[in-house]
Write a protein that binds this DNA or RNA. Structure first.
Length: 561
RNA sequence: UGGGGCAUCGUCUAAUGGCAGGACAACGCUCUUUGGAAGCGUGAAUCGUGGUUCGAAUCCACGUGCCCCAGCCA
């Protein structure tokens, strides 16, 4: 028995119990997105749950598009789900569409009418709202509630035939206008929408509502455990009502599915609703659904996150019925953990300043051996780096007025050049405004692989790139999209945006990466994990996205030595 | 105000009447040619009040707080 994909939770408990009882066959789940936006990491949680369960129990999981609203859905979104599901590493048992079932659903609606359990209502939208009542006042019947079966059948057929305009009539379930559960106060089952559906075209001008469509889809597909999020809890009563009335009829199987709800994923500094994500895209706040700052799977992918990390994240977040908000740091930690043993170490300088090694001849070029992996990652390989007289180093790695705890280069101080010599800074050349143009330092001989002979150890280690062989590169540094932990609470999420969520730096990368695969991920030493932007990077114009920064325990401050 | 749900370290969770544990985060130490990784350690929780019980995070009662529901969205 291999390890389970889904860690035990209240749903696996239910399945385990079912397996010993009424449910004798396979476990069937489904992932039922509406194709009205791109999948995000919240969908990933649901995907990992539904597909993971099917794998764990040797069952099946369909991908089923809940495409019952022609006004917001499109093939572009269908393709996004297909692509991202595949990227995540899951293969659906079948791919289905609610729109595949429109004919059968129509028949089921007619059956309901014949049962006297549904009627065509012709009050306007506003009037219906009024008649539905409030938390304190019961709903009251529409004047059309008691139409005859024959009249309802005829009207419903006319609705489908396109004899009415949008909103003139609806089909409603006849349940209980006095129910304290609003969902039971005669929910709308079908509405008239004269819109072209991306799959069925103009074949239909009536479309089933979620409450009607979903239980039928589950029934048709033989779903056993229909998992959805908490906000559908009240809808379960409608689900059950319809299942009991229709199972074993109009071609539907007898065996009933059951709905269970779990808490959707929320993360701090993030919005997760497709509506809000769409707005960010439409208003140009981000550069598309795959902007690396987006919580979409395409955004995470473009940033460089691997599917392994997303799955691991879903696992660590767990499944529960309590609303929760996951910290961004958990995602970061999981991404680093995934990349640590996957990304070879190389050096890049993001904000370069020139370092001149004054006691090296201009033509000098010392070959130094640099392993791709730190000693605690059990992988082999190294490259040779040419150390010349002039190097690029990080501007941040030199200070004339270092704060306490600064373990980098200062005038008169010593640091080791990663994989190379210990150097001692002699002077800084500055322009008229006082900006450091270059730093001159001398190499301490005999320090390749050993400490200085005088016993004065370097204060730190800094990375570098040889000026002569350096490859120029652009670095895109991404940070959280929002500046506040709960952007959903903001009146206008656009005002909560983090103004520095994207920064671009022009620097250099070591020459060894020349010829690497276009999807090669690296750890730039002391900086973070990066990879070439899959859209914009070119061999002659390198652009690297920062996937996630390295954890950094450096906190300059008064309390430090 | 009616109904439906949910409450365990800062965060996500485990414990299914029997020592409140883990991960992330924080802090400290060790190690370190990455201020990385790893290792060690510290601080940190059962929403409240009663009750049942030898024993309660768990069962019961009463509170409190938060989430969802009055779309012809899903």
């Amino acid at each position: 028995m291999t390890a389970r994909l889904v860690r035990p939770n209240f749903i696996t408990e239910i399945i385990d119990r079912d397996l010993g009882g009424e449910l004798s066959g396979v476990v069937r789940t489904r992932f039922p997105p509406e194709p009205n936006g791109y999948p995000h990491i919240g969908h990933a949680k649901s995907i990992c749950l539904n597909f993971g369960l099917a794998l764990d129990y040797r069952g099946e999981c369909n991908l089923r598009f809940d495409d019952t609203n022609p006004e917001t859905e499109s093939q572009e979104y269908v393709e996004a789900f297909l692509r991202d599901l595949d990227w995540l590493g899951f293969a659906p048992s079948r791919v289905r569409f609610a729109s595949d079932y429109f004919d059968q659903m129509y028949l089921c609606a007619a059956e309901l009418i014949r049962q006297g359990a549904a009627y065509v209502d012709s009050v306007g939208e506003e009037e219906m709202r009024r008649l539905r009542g409030t938390v304190t006042v019961l709903g009251s019947p529409s004047p059309f509630r008691d139409r005859s079966v024959a009249e309802n059948l005829a009207l419903f057929a006319d609705m489908a035939a396109g004899r009415f305009g949008d909103g003139e009539h609806v089909l409603r379930a006849k349940i209980d206008l006095g129910s304290p559960n609003f969902k039971l106060r005669d929910p709308v089952l079908y509405r008239i929408v004269h819109a072209t559906h991306y799959r069925t075209g103009d074949r239909w001008c009536i479309y089933p509502m979620y409450d009607f469509a979903h239980p039928l889809e589950d029934l048709i597909e033989g779903v056993t455990h229909s998992l959805c999020t908490l906000e559908f809890e009240n809808n379960r009563a409608v689900y059950d009502w319809l299942v009991e009335r229709l199972r074993g009829r109009c071609g539907l199987p007898e065996r009933r599915p059951r709905q269970y709800e779990f808490a959707r994923l929320s993360m701090d500094y993030t919005v997760m609703s497709k509506r809000k994500l769409l707005r960010l895209v439409q208003e140009g706040e981000v550069q598309g659904w795959d902007d690396p700052r987006m919580p979409t799977l395409s955004g995470l992918r473009r940033r460089g996150v691997r599917p392994e990390a997303v799955r691991s994240f879903a696992d660590r977040v767990g499944v529960d019925r309590a609303n929760s908000r996951v910290e961004l740091s958990l995602l970061d930690a999981v991404i680093r953990d995934d990349l640590n043993a996957e990304a070879p170490r190389v050096m890049a300088v993001l904000r370069p300043v020139k370092l001149v090694l004054s006691n090296l001849p201009a033509s000098s070029e010392v070959p130094v051996q640099a392993p791709y992996w730190p000693r605690d990652v059990p992988r082999q390989g190294s490259r040779t780096l040419p150390l010349g007289r002039e190097l690029w180093i990080e501007a941040d790695d030199f200070s004339e007025d270092p704060p306490k705890g600064f373990r980098r280069l200062r005038l008169g101080g010593r640091v080791r050049l990663r994989y190379a010599y210990v150097i001692e800074a002699e002077r800084a050349v500055k322009d008229a405004s006082g900006r450091v143009l270059e730093i001159h330092a001398r190499v301490l001989p005999e320090t390749l692989g050993s400490d200085p002979a005088d016993g004065v150890r370097p204060q730190g280690v800094i990375h570098w790139v040889p000026v002569r062989e350096a490859l120029p590169a652009e670095f895109r540094l991404y940070d959280r999209l929002f500046a506040v932990p709960d952007p959903d609470a903001a009146d206008d999420p656009a005002t909560a945006l983090n103004p520095s969520s994207r920064a671009v730096a022009q620097g250099y990368i070591e020459p060894s990466v020349q010829g690497d695969a276009p999807d090669q991920r690296y750890q730039f030493e002391r900086l973070g994990y990066f990879w070439p932007d899959p859209e914009d990077s070119r061999p002659d114009r390198r652009i690297y996205n920062r996937i996630v920064p390295l954890k950094d325990s450096y906190r300059p401050g008064p309390g430090r030595i």
